[in-house]
Design a protein around this nucleic acid. Structure first.
Lengths: 176, 176
DNA sequence: CACACAAATGCAACTAGTTGCATAATGCTA
DNA sequence: TAGCATTATGCAACTAGTTGCATTTGTGTG
């Protein structure tokens, strides 16, 4: 259901194609939602079938047609209903934590590789956040309420990543 | 794949039934992995079929048989392979963040309910952590290396939850 | 010129997880 | 004594997400 809602949100802001949505998921929305192109195309088609989206096919010279989706009143209603209902708790799945539960059998070198790899991932994430911040929220003082809200989500993302990194550094220091 | 690995870990520590594993997922492993009984039973049977687990059926007077699973050498090998390979990055899916991206159309009362509900969930999580800490790690000084590792995961869980709560309080304060 | 990449879409087969229902005994509570 | 929780298992149908492959044309790189 949540992918649907995210698609409705991005398309109510501005109609677009599956490919457009994919690009938004890769840049401005990267810390909010990620999905493969296959999933996006399939879901958009299902939503059109369910009457939540309209689809206008724009032929292009010598290239595959662009299918531009826009939200319908029914889609708008579904989005409003989703906004109104608080989200349920999400399931906990922490494969890394599981490895810590079998510490005795987790070879030291594998462990060090794992933690180094995680560290890279976390640093890469911080860089991605910085890029988004620079592009969209370069002046936090000048933000309107509507811009300020998504900016808060970026801040939380950064803070969570920093919490991870601090913990990681402690663990790595202890490992020597 | 990760559910498999988590099942291998819990069963190599001590053989048990699907029901046993479910109980462990509800208590000591609650911040590591959660899965429904259906998923667990199905996966255990598939793993037995793949030769990763042995199954011994223990009949009980007037109740359904207990099926006690234990890990085989093949299962052990699969677990070792999983431990050796660093985990890939996990997909980002933050439905709450998505709601912040449509702030203009997110009614204030729905928003307040959402944040209040989240706050309860986070506080409940902290309480669950405290219960686990009390039961398993009451004396952090006296922990062996093998106990110390899972204790670290609990600490990170707590710190992440606190990061969330601090952020939430800021957002709620700003909302007035 | 060959090769890779970007723009733009899609099918098919798979794995992972959810939801609803069902069974069957025991023990506890109103 | 009726109803509910616990112990213990499972099927069937569903939704969600992944992986591998395939098409067509332009544009840039070595």
């Amino acid at each position: 259901m949540s992918l649907r809602a995210v698609l409705l949100i991005t398309l109510q802001r501005e109609p677009g194609t599956g490919y457009d949505v994919l690009q938004r998921f890769k840049t401005g929305l990267a810390h909010v939602w990620q999905a493969s192109h296959q999933q996006i195309y399939r879901e958009l088609d299902k939503m059109r079938g369910a009457g939540l989206l309209d689809c206008e096919t724009v032929p292009q010279a010598e290239r595959p047609d662009r299918k531009v989706y826009s939200i319908t009143p029914a889609g708008r209603a579904e989005l409003d209903a989703w906004l109104a209902a608080p989200l349920g708790p999400s399931a906990v799945r922490q494969p890394l934590f599981a490895k810590f539960f079998i510490w005795e059998d987790w070879p030291a070198e594998a462990r060090q590789r794992e933690l180094a790899s995680l560290r890279e991932q976390l640093n890469a994430r911080l860089q991605a956040y910085a890029a988004i911040e620079k592009e969209w929220f370069s002046d936090p003082q000048a933000l309107t309420a509507a811009q300020r809200a998504p900016w808060h989500t970026l801040r939380l993302g950064q803070q969570l990543t920093e919490t991870w990194l601090t913990w990681l550094e402690e663990i790595q220091a202890e490992g020597e």
